[in-house]
């Protein structure tokens, strides 16, 4: 089994068996509640994984994490959670470009706010040939699919390949913007 997890848009998790059976899938389209929902989704997915292990002997082999692009605050929650759950279970994690899960669509874009989309292009064999790159909304080509979700099933599907090709692992999120380029909109309390 591989578990796919992505919070670059909403919150998406999926658990896929070795035979390609979708054992668990969840999509929350709320782009502001990743930190709230992620714990329960992980708990549910692992419950399914554990009972699958008990009945078939097939173990959870790893976690495939969508590394963006996407709005930073939400994106990081899935990456942090994916890494922590892999650590908690003592299994490896693999990072991939979130758009790779949507390669079938050809040209895809994620709304990364501030009037920009992050865009990637794929050829018919699913190889990324462009991006992810920031493009202003006004410059966005008509044939770019504006994504409303990332398929965690497709992420999980990449697990077997990534486990064999560790050099393909993406370790740094696709932020695409410098950290200091983010305006501080309002002062927050605390330290």
């Amino acid at each position: 089994m591989f578990l796919g997890i992505d919070t670059s848009i909403g919150t998406a998790l999926a658990l896929l068996s070795k035979g390609g059976e979708v054992l668990y899938e969840v999509q929350s389209s709320d782009t502001r509640a990743h930190a709230e929902v992620i714990g329960v989704f992980i708990e549910q997915a692992l419950e399914v994984a554990d009972s699958h292990t008990a009945s078939t002997g097939e173990n959870l082999r790893g976690v495939v994490i969508g590394m963006g692009p996407g709005p930073f605050t939400g994106l990081r929650i899935g990456i942090a959670a994916g890494r922590a759950l892999a650590f908690g279970r003592g299994i490896p994690y693999f990072g991939v470009c979130s758009h790779d899960a949507m390669a079938d669509l050809g040209k895809v874009g994620t709304d990364v706010r501030r009037r920009e989309h992050a865009v990637s292009h794929y050829d018919t064999s699913g190889v990324r040939i462009f991006g992810p790159t920031l493009i202003q909304n006004t410059e966005l080509a008509e044939d770019v699919h504006k994504l409303s979700e990332i398929s965690a099933i497709n992420l999980a599907r990449l697990g077997g390949y990534l486990a064999e090709n560790s050099e393909q692992n993406i370790l740094t999120p696709f932020y695409l913007r410098d950290a200091d380029a983010v305006p501080q909109l309002k002062k927050e309390g605390g330290a």
Binding site: G39, I42, A81, G190
Partner: peptide, 27 residues
């Protein structure tokens, strides 16, 4: 859980929840 910088807090909370859920420990 707070008070503090929202984006910074969420990294710790996301990680802690996943750690709790994957090990069955209370948070």
């Amino acid at each position: 859980a707070g008070p503090g910088l929202a984006g910074a807090l969420m990294v710790g909370v996301g990680a802690a929840k996943a750690l709790a859920a994957s090990t069955g420990k209370p948070i």
